[in-house]
Each structure stands twice: as structure tokens, then as C-alpha cells.
Computed example of a mutant assay.
Amino acid sequence: MPVEMPDQKIARDLLAHYDVHARTLSWRAAPGANATDPYRVWLSEVMLQQTTVAAAGPYFDRFTARWPTVESLAGATDADLMAAWAGLGYYARARNLLACARMVVRDHGGEFPDSEAGLLSLPGVGAYTAAAIAAIAFGRRAVVVDANVERVVARLFAIATPLPAGRSQIRAAADRITPDARAGDFAQAMMDLGATICTSRSPACGICPLRADCAAVATADPAAFPVKAAKKPRPHRLGHGWWIERDRHVWLIRRPDKGLLGGMRALPSSDWSAAPDPRSPLTADWRTIADPVDHVFTHFSLALTMHWTDAGQQPSGPGEWWPVERLDEAGLPTLFRRAADAVLTQRKCHDHA
């Protein structure tokens, strides 16, 4: 009888646990069955990049109800898709989503490539996403390492090299324990373990199916893995935004396609820098919100000072008058939705003063 190697035991124990405790998610097939729709796997993986399951779930359900196939998504307008994505953040993902859907339809007859190499040729599909789709949708053996898997593997093997340098060791260890069969289930089981048991803080080691094989359990502090390099301070920037209202319509612009919040509807704003240009879009009687709207992007934080006016005139340059009562339909990104709420609150106080 062949002897089971430790790495094989890890996969066996984890898959047995997954068969009983797998999370039920809209995009996931039941344990033991590969997902039959690569479109849903791809869409979920793009939405889950730097986003929690709780945040992405409602967007996934709305997207698949509105665009149930890659062909229907490829036919969406840029404006409709960006509006539907509003609030989910990291808007380059939305632009790549549409570009990828169109390429799959145009160049691949509506069928996603079934290999990592083929998937990597698609817009917005990097190494992790390609591996996840190959394993989960097509049953290919692929090494899938997201933040949850990274944490689980670093603890299993007590990898003490600080990130990001330690990632090559983590990937090599993940490769060793990835089985040839049920690679998609194994990847999702690792994700579930990291999300529900082997969490960043206070891991529940007592109920972990891999406790017996985990090197970090033998240390005084399993939560110390993975070891992270000290964070650099996030730069702080300032900006100005303008709410221009006429006959219960507000002036909205569309941001340039490239750059932060590219292609999104927005309120007019200045540059975002240490010393932004405060020149307003038009000459008017401006009122200023006392407290700036604070927002944190990946690489910097922003304090946006909002100004508002009943202008009665249209600014120069492209834009559109949008009904204030239908502002929820404009698809404003979170920063500008919060800026709009701040203005509307201030206006209500002003009108009742």
C-alpha cells in the first residue's frame, strides 16, 4: 500500500473538510463538480479582486441578472457598465471587464480559453485570476494564491521571510500541496479556510482541519504569519469639488478614460495634489461645506472641499444636467456620492435656516 506523503495528507484533509463546510456562493459549483460556466467564475474573480465576498456578492447578482452571458456583457455600453459598477471601487477592473468580454466574443467565439496561458492573454487577467479560472472553471491543475491562500500557506509552513520577498517561497509551498485532482475545489477550500478559520487576527486553530500539520501552531503566535514589511506612510492630498445646480438638476461631467475613476460620471473637481488649483468652473456665488469629504484610495488619502451654488448657468466644456432626484441612477463613484450627500445635507440645513 503506497505511503501517503505529508503534502498529500494536507490536500486530503482539507478537501474532506470542504465537502462538508464549503461556503454557498452565487458563482460557486457544489464540491466535487467543476463550475460549468467560466463566465460566472471570471466575473466573480474580477469582482473579488481587493474586494470582500460580502461587498461583491450583491454586484455579482445584479450583473448576472442584467448580463447573464459574456455576449450580453460585451454588448453593454461603457456608460451602463461603469454606472452598474459604481461603488465597488478599483474602476480599472470595470474597464478591463468590458474589454475582456468584447475580446472573448470577438476573438474566441464567446468561449473563454481553458488554459492559464490563454487566459493570460485577456485584458485584466493576471496570474492569479488566470490560475483561478483554469482550476475552478476548467478543472486544470493550477496554483491559486490569493491573500487568503497566502496567509494559510505561510502559517502551514511557518514561512518567516517578510512579504513581499516571501511570496516566492509561499507559492512554491502552495504548489507542493496542490493536488492533481480537484484543483478547483482545493483552491476554493483554501480560500474558505483563510476567510473563515485561518483569519488575519485570532485564527480559530482549534477547529482547523490542518492543525496537525501546521508549523505555525507550534509557535507562540500563529497570527504573526505571514510576516509583513513595515508599511510606508500614505501620502495625503487635497482637492476642491463643485456642486452646480439649476432647476433641481446638477451638472455632472465624465472623467477622462485614463486615470483614477476613469470614464465615471462625477462632479467637477480640481486636481488632487498637495496644493490643488481652487479655480471654480464658473463665476458664481459659492458656498463652502465646512468639513472636507475624506476618502482613501489605494496609494493616497484625499480631503475634498466641496463648494455649491445655484448657478443658473452652464459651465463651459462637456457635461450634462442630471436630475437631483435621480442621482442614485447616475452611477457616481463612492467619493462623489459622498460629496453629493454632504452638499445635499448642507443645503437642507441652509434652506431651513
Rank of each mutant, 00 (worst) to 15 (best):
L327W: 06
A290Q: 07
A216M: 07
E320I: 02
S168M: 09
D285N: 12
M82Y: 07
I133E: 09
L302R: 08
G239D: 14
G239F: 14
D192Y: 10
V105I: 05
G263Y: 12
N148R: 00
R95F: 02
R95N: 08
V105D: 02
A131S: 13
A132C: 08
E71H: 14
G194E: 11
W27V: 01
C214L: 13
A142Y: 05
A218P: 04
P292C: 01
W243V: 12
I170G: 07
A183Y: 00
L73C: 12
A204K: 14
L73H: 14
G312L: 09
A187C: 03
H17N: 09
D213T: 00
D61E: 15
H299P: 15
T334G: 13
L261P: 08
G262Y: 01
V227I: 08
S121T: 15
D192S: 10
W67G: 11
F297K: 09
M264L: 11
D107E: 07
V145W: 05
R347K: 08
L97E: 05
Q188E: 14
L304M: 13
A353K: 14
P226W: 10
M82N: 12
A215Y: 10
L238M: 11
P209L: 09
K228N: 14
L163D: 07
H240E: 12
R28M: 08
V217N: 11
G239L: 15
T334N: 08
G239S: 15
W27Q: 05
R255W: 03
G139S: 10
I253M: 03
A117G: 07
E4M: 14
P162M: 06
E116G: 06
E45G: 01
M306Q: 00
D277S: 01
L120T: 06
L332M: 06
A218G: 03
E71R: 09
D37I: 13
W286S: 05
P209I: 12
T77E: 06
A290I: 08
W251M: 08
A54D: 13
G139Q: 11
G239E: 13
A142I: 01
A290S: 11
D257R: 15
A11E: 03
I133F: 14
E116Y: 05
P123C: 10
M306W: 07
H295M: 04
R248S: 12
D78H: 13
L156P: 10
A230W: 06
A147Q: 03
H249V: 04
E111F: 09
Y39G: 14
R141L: 09
T178N: 01
L97Y: 10
L304Y: 06
V149Y: 02
A183R: 09
G75W: 12
Q346I: 01
D294H: 14
A173F: 06
V104K: 04
P2Y: 02
R12E: 00
R254Y: 08
Y18T: 02
C208W: 08
I170V: 15
S44F: 09
R171N: 13
D192H: 05
A147C: 12
S168V: 08
R23N: 12
A290V: 12
A11S: 11
W251L: 01
T196L: 15
I244D: 10
A229W: 02
E150G: 13
L15N: 02
C100K: 02
M191A: 07
A55D: 06
T283W: 09
Q50W: 11
T334V: 10
